[in-house]
Design a protein around this nucleic acid. Sequence first.
RNA 1: GGUCCUAUAGUUCAAUGGAUAGAACGAAGGUUUCCUAAACCUUAGAUCCAGGUUCGAUUCCUGGUGGGACUACCA
Length: 595
Amino acid sequence: MEIILKSRITEGLRILYNSEVSDDLVQIHETRKEFIGDFTLVVFPLLRFSKNTPEKTGETIGRYLMDTFPSVTGFNVIKGFLNLEISPSWWISCFGGMLAGDDLLGKCRSDDPETILIEYSSPNTNKPLHLGHIRNNLLGFSLYRILSACGHRVIKTNIVNDRGIHICKSMLAWQKYGKGETPAKSGIKGDHLVGKYYVLFEREYRKQADVLIADGMDPVEAKNNAPLLKEAREMLVKWEAGDPETMELWNMMNSWVYEGFNETYRKLGVDFDKIYYESDTYKTGRDIIYNALQEGLLHENGDSSIWADLTDEGLDQKLLLRSDGTAVYMTQDIGTAVLRHEEFGFDRCIYVVGNEQNYHFQVLKAILKKMNYTWSEGLYHFSYGMVELPEGRMKSREGVIVDADDLIAEMIETAREVSLELGKLSDFPGNEKGEIYRKIGLAALKYFILKVDPKKNMTFNPAESIDFNGNTGPFIQYTYARIRSVFRKAEEAGITFSRNISLTVGAGAKEIQLIKLLRRFAFTVTEAAKTYSPALIANYCYDLAREYNQFYHDFTILGETDQTVRDLRMGLSEITGKVLSTGMLLLGIEMPERM
RNA sequence: GGUCCUAUAGUUCAAUGGAUAGAACGAAGGUUUCCUAAACCUUAGAUCCAGGUUCGAUUCCUGGUGGGACUACCA
């Protein structure tokens, strides 16, 4: 409609003022609620063509549209805004399309589908996942759903950071203090068990350093000379050399961790098409760097370390291989990127990684460009904000952390408590109830995180549990459950409805309002894909649920005696339910039939 | 020092450069013989500061101030 109006207006301006007006000056948007009308034309930009006051210009254009365009049934001009009223029958017929089974996301399909690789999660194998990872996983997975909905081929990947000194720390601590403890024996989830030894290492290591400092050693030196750290370094050397015993330990403990991670991923409802391991890709990175060095794209320092000079890009020198030939983080990321491009030939590669690594990705892109990989243009760092506690950042080394598994369990438990308190689902068998609590608890968590603009830091206060009322996931689920309930009741009563809504049905303002909002869904999804923002969809779903709840409260649906009106209201309920569940699915949130 | 991000009710979040800045939580009050009250309705409450561009700025630009991150031969 906006497009038609726009072309009509452009045409009108040609006739009325003999002026060719460029497209972007004809600004049309939906009329704000507090004014009468459906669409609004901003007339200010057109004054230079009309050479008249905003009021007169609006009047003239409004009159022209009334006379030439039957769908426009009225207009008013307020302070330079021309509000156009569109005939209800246009809205009804627009809604009729949705009811007839038009693909809700049809308008989102890209004309130019791309292959998009998306990396998210990226855990270290020395400790369990925490709230920061939850935000990462949810954003990554939701972007996957959104971009897929827009017709792209999207590949979900994970890169596991399974090598480095931090892994050796937990291995060493387990070797020293573990007494053969395993997940099976202790009943502790694998990733938590390994995490326990990581924390233990840090504690013992700090004790040793403190002793050295007490003996009069310089603090920096003491931290470097603590026996435990030396042992960990030796272990890393053994690992790099492929020492069988070390490798065996490494494999065993990693397998525990992966089992633990998989459980968390499953609970969270995310998955991957392809998992890369840093222990594989760093070697590729090293080879690539040696090649690039030979081609003269990189340079060697006096101590035989290898560097990229990025001063042309306004960046610094960046180390790529240490003087002893071992790899750094960047080395591995270069390898991974090249491997991925060889394997998938992506158009875009989206890295879902926190904003603390903005510089890293700027450098990564610059280095790949310097190495003449033209596809590096398609790399995009989806930089999201940190999740902070009221006291500040989470610190895993100090145990100031919100554990992912604990939080998920807590949310489900809270869902159960709230439900019991409200006396819901009392006639349900236990296992079905459990499934609903799970959906609700996860929805609360996921929505809480996804409704926030990704690039902003957000605060999580463990003391105040996540809400279940107001602008929340359960609120939207509740709206959906209500709709389902209406249809169950309709079935019981033998009420069916016709999807051929009469164009002359007596639709009220609230019904039209809902139609307008429903119509905006596809636009919102497109916008969310363009701006990489699941938050837009979350907030849209909330608006729609609120609008529907008002409607539901003020009007009867099944009790309506005028059948054409009842058809319309049932139709609105059906589409609202579909849009809500489709929208929430794009966020990775499931909807319960009852709650 | 340099680079990047950010600043909106008491709190947590919204607002393609458009009209009277929206919600939620919290506070105060109200709605249930009727399709699920996890709902609905009232009331009180906010754009960090100073300039600039514009018919119009929460939004764009410049400069301050506050918060965060990065600037490792850690990952």
